[in-house]
């Protein structure tokens, strides 16, 4: 699903974010990307949805080299990838329903499809009853659920989550993780960057650890830290 070969990313000012990363993520995998701030987690995730392109090396998503995608092919790639962030990125002047339907409107889905898919996505995240609420009326966890609904409404192959529990209390964070697990069980590949040790240690999924832009650990059922 995602293959990285010798990936380097150097930002202006000679800042090396990634240094020779090799990584393979299969369909249906659930992968935690862990590591200290500045280790390159967000850069690695952004390459999956082509928010960044490698300075050297190759990133293949569904067999397509993201650096060789033509400009008009990038939106098509992104329609198959859902992305969620720590800060939710919701539109404050639109209702919960409209925030989710927005993702379908901009890819010119038919009204029929929107009417069918948006309630399904809201039910999936447990917010069907708050469809007409505005984001400011929701708690942090609920806002993240709206963001997840928006990310999955178009049935993506991959869900990229950049510290989605970073702003949430422990209980709400675990609720969100349950939701992501459900989505993963339905066949969607989930790649999630996190600093939350409890979550990683509780869930025991694949863990890829980055340090100074390099993969220093890749364990099938790993913990947040090295285990003796």
């Amino acid at each position: 699903m995602v293959n990285m070969y010798g990936v380097y990313k150097v930002y202006p000012g000679n800042v090396e974010a990634l240094r020779g990363v090799n990584l393979n993520i299969d369909k249906g995998d659930f992968v935690f990307i862990v590591g200290p701030s500045g280790s390159g987690k967000s850069t690695l995730l952004s390459m999956i949805y082509r928010g960044a392109v490698p300075t050297r090396g190759h990133v293949l998503v569904s067999g397509r080299n993201i650096a060789r995608l033509r400009w008009h092919e990038v939106p098509m790639l992104r329609r198959r990838i859902g992305v969620i962030f720590q800060d939710y990125k919701l539109l404050p002047d639109r209702s919960v329903y409209d925030n989710v339907s927005f993702a379908l409107e901009v890819i010119e889905a038919s009204p029929k499809e929107i009417e069918k898919k948006v309630p399904q996505a809201l039910s999936m995240v447990g917010l069907a009853h708050k469809a007409s609420a505005m984001p400011e009326e929701l708690a942090g966890g609920e806002q993240q659920r709206v963001a997840i609904a928006r990310a999955i409404v178009n049935d993506p192959l991959i869900l990229v989550a950049d510290e989605p529990t970073g702003n949430l209390d422990p209980d709400t964070a675990l609720d969100i993780m349950d939701l992501l697990c459900d989505i993963n069980l339905r066949g969607t590949t989930v790649v999630m960057a996190t600093h939350n040790q409890v979550i990683v240690d509780t869930m025991r999924k694949r863990v890829v650890q980055l340090e100074r832009g390099m993969v220093v650990r890749d364990e099938r059922w790993g913990a947040y830290c090295y285990e003796a």
Binding site: W71, L91, F102, A103, I107, R150
Partner: peptide, 15 residues
């Protein structure tokens, strides 16, 4: 912000 989300969810440039 709207534009950023549009780009993330796969809106085309012309859109």
């Amino acid at each position: 912000k709207e534009i950023e989300i549009m780009k993330l969810v796969g809106a085309t440039d012309s859109f």
